[in-house]
Write a protein that binds this DNA or RNA. Structure first.
Lengths: 265, 265
DNA sequence: CCTCTTGTCACTAATATACTCACAAAACGG
DNA sequence: CCGTTTTGTGAGTATATTAGTGACAAGAGG
């Protein structure tokens, strides 16, 4: 447990570099160089345990990606760019690629996406669920009902709700604690709070939302007890769309009844 | 030339997705789903040319990454998230990973990086050179001399120079056209302009800089004629650091002479 | 009840990547 | 100056990942 690969900065760095598309050799070479500052192929080979003869290829790869500079002497010396510059380089590159991807995908997308959906879809993982929720919030035009446990009400979501409020969407929130509720009242003056339907906090429920009365999503925290509250893989959601969708129909009945009871118009 | 893989949005999307770490099957499956909106394994198989029996694995991979939702029916139906959401998901994930990387690398970095360097280092590629230049600008404490051809004076660089000016760094610029010069005067009131030393625009030179009299960088556009002016791989730079560094010594002599002649203090 | 489709599994083929070794040219040290 | 070590390059092998194929049981539909 002393050199757990999840905690050792060296392993973390290598792992991330590999996921950014570098080969194992290149990743280890860069990490070695980063800790060395500067060094020769032999120096690198010794601390990285990359075969010396392969260090040169790794350096080529790194030089091509702009991560390493080369001093043309004998022996050659190599120099790793700083942590900030390296991470900045990746972010730049990836943002650019993400844009390319979005453009390409947009061109492919069919003009009208799912007008009316039958059935209930599933999404797993907290980040994926959050993405979907944000997308739903962004698509809201008139009314938005959102019930959530506190842990899942991130700033991102509050921002999203705020933007919806500015668009003129009427917002109904529930399931948040008194402190958070106050925070929200500041951010989104127009939001209406209401009591949870059942004892929300005791269940392993996560969130529950309805958009314009025709899109709904429900999530649950699958191992939500005392395990790891921040485990990104612990949430499972289902959603449905369309006026006749069964999930929508059921939730609409519940919410409409509840809201009408509290705020009759 | 009609279906050049560089231009076809489908190929671009697949290529980018693969570079984001997806398998070829997963990438093709996602693109197929994106153009279909929603579909079954067979639909996907037909338009993506992924073997039907492998579509399921690909979907698993995509579902794990939050890119596809699954409708549990028979036959199962799959739904690709929108282009914006997908690209947003990647950017989020990558920014997070870049942060992890930077933290890990920072912990590894030696406390004092290269106090005095002997020799001359090389950097290739316009983006890599720009990164280095920005880093140098950011490290300037007193004086900064920067000579450049117009193409290479991006907004990023002007911003960097502006920040340096605010820190109290005295800035000397050359090689820019009259229009750009005006723009700079607005952005950076403190900057001093001076005439180029030689007929800069006719050569294939790129930039030439000196920071605090102890760091220098020179670049050249290697195929800079009429080929592709925006080709990111067309710039090659060398740099050196330290009071006794040969490149530094030479350039310092030139610049100091020139500046003293124009602006004797 | 028969047939076609669907989803899962076990397996092979191809390919990329990790790793080793041999060797010439260049530095080093008497 | 010559033997020895170090350095950089290239060819070649092993290994792991991923692409691709086919068999089959369970389920849907006529």
């Amino acid at each position: 447990m002393s050199n757990n690969p999840d905690e050792d900065p060296q392993s973390v760095a290598i792992q991330q570099l590999e996921r950014f598309g570098l080969s194992a050799y290149a990743a280890r070479t860069f990490v070695a160089l980063a800790s060395l500052g500067t060094g020769t192929a032999r120096d690198v080979s010794q601390v990285s345990e990359v075969p010396r003869t392969r260090v040169y290829d790794a350096i080529d790869e790194l030089h091509d990606r702009g991560l390493v500079d080369i001093l043309q002497s004998s022996p050659k010396q190599f120099w790793a760019i700083s942590a900030e510059t390296a991470s900045g380089t990746f972010v730049h590159e990836l943002e650019h690629r993400a844009e390319l991807l979005q453009t390409a995908l947009s061109e492919l997308e069919p003009t009208e996406r799912r007008a009316e959906q039958r059935g209930v879809w599933t999404v797993d993982g907290q980040t994926a669920v959050t993405e979907r929720v944000l997308e739903f919030i962004a698509s809201a035009e008139e009314e938005l009902v959102y019930m959530t446990v506190e842990d899942l009400l991130t700033d991102e979501l509050i921002d999203g709700l705020g933007e919806a409020a500015e668009r003129g969407v009427s917002i109904h929130l529930a399931g948040v604690s008194a402190e958070v509720q106050e925070h929200i009242q500041e951010e989104i003056p127009g939001a209406t709070m209401f009591e949870s339907l059942w004892v929300w906090s005791d269940t392993s429920a996560g969130r529950l939302m309805m958009v314009d009365g025709r899109k709904t999503l429900v999530s649950a925290l699958v191992n939500g007890e005392d395990a790891s509250p921040s485990d990104p893989r612990s949430e499972t959601a289902i959603w449905g769309e369309g006026d006749t969708n069964s999930l929508v129909v059921v939730l609409k009945a519940i919410f409409t009844w509840r809201l009408d009871t509290e705020n009759p118009n």
